[in-house]
Amino acid sequence: DVVNEILQYVIEGDFKGQTYDELAKFVDKFGPRPSGTESLENSIDYMIQLTRDEDINNVVTEEVQVPLWERGEEKITMHEPRHKNIAVLGLGRSVSTPPEGITAEVVVVKSFDELESQEENNIKGKIVLFNAIFTKYGETTVYRTQGATRAAQKGAVASLVRSVAPFSINSPHTGAQNYGENVTKIPTAAITIEDADLINRMYERGEKVVLNIQMQSTYETNKVSRNTLVDYKGIQYPEKLVIVSGHIDSWDVGQGAMDDGGGLFISWAVPVILHRLNLRPKRTIRSIFWTAEELGLIGAYAYEERHRNESDNINFIMESDEGTFAPLGLEVAGSQEARCMIAEILKLFQSINASTLVESDSPGSDIAVLVNTGIPGASLYNANEKYFWFHHTEGDTITVENEHELDLGAAFWTAVAYIIADLSVDIPR
């Protein structure tokens, strides 16, 4: 009756509300935790101590070289056709503008195809605004990650992107972007949906839109951070691993409570809950707190490289990085037999409405690095319809989280990990 024991203990028993309380303490204490900062390293030390305070002492860290991109002053002012301040968040790794800023006319496009169809003379010396309407994150985010490179290739002096979000109350959403090789690095930033639509309407009416963009930032590549590994040793096959995970770093806005504080804390809760209930599975459950996810899955790539020769021991890998709202089930990658085993396990969670198995070739963010090598894995499938309202914004605070839903998530995460780690057979590759 393990599932019921865990659900009862977390949802109604002594653990009720503890995931939320610990998450709230954590994000209130450290606030945002960007890659390469002292805040992130202090938060890692805090999680290690929090785990040891639970009498779980099998905790190690592994060093990872990470970048530090630090935002300075950012300001966009519309000069023509009228004066207006434009809310802005620079994108990760963006270069600075000169101190006086860049003043130029705006060209609005809705897609890369539209950009490519433009004469180079029409782009050269101008600011390109990518006003791509949000469809799915994976589809729309390319304008954020590649927009600066594509605009620079056509001679633009700066690029702006409509925030990658389906909804906005004038909130800009930051995020990572990468400069391609052999292109001029131009400043790049996100503006709000409202301002992107405003500029788009003016542009389509034939009005000349002129902006001044002022952005300052610094970028260093030689900082050191750490992945944190908490092992809850299995009693029969300690070398075999079932991994649960979330990332501990965040963007420099809000508190990173949703992205990915919730995923971090339900993964931290797994060994804690099992230890408190004295439930010891056959295989080892490893909780990993990934570092430097936001600037490109840097901790996950380092882990995969460091543990490549042991990867056969990973039986299953789980990650929560798309919200910890009410759990609905799992988004699973693996063979037909692996998916059927997980589907059978999920049937045990009908009482909390978390029995749905969604198939995906590449679930999660960090774990995609390992799943793509053939390891079966899953991400938390949850009622995250509003996730991208808050993603990478000042609005990502503990206020977004719900105490009961975090309890459901922690209980579900723990029970699923326990069952997989305790079965008599491995999840097949």
Partner: peptide, 26 residues
């Protein structure tokens, strides 16, 4: 693309023994 799984297709994939083992956790 993510698609909800049709679990009926699993009926011939897992052994009865394994299905019973998993059910025993409830």
């Amino acid at each position: 693309a993510s698609l909800p799984k049709n679990t009926e297709e699993c009926s011939n994939v897992l052994t009865e023994e394994l299905i019973k083992e998993i059910a025993a956790y409830d």
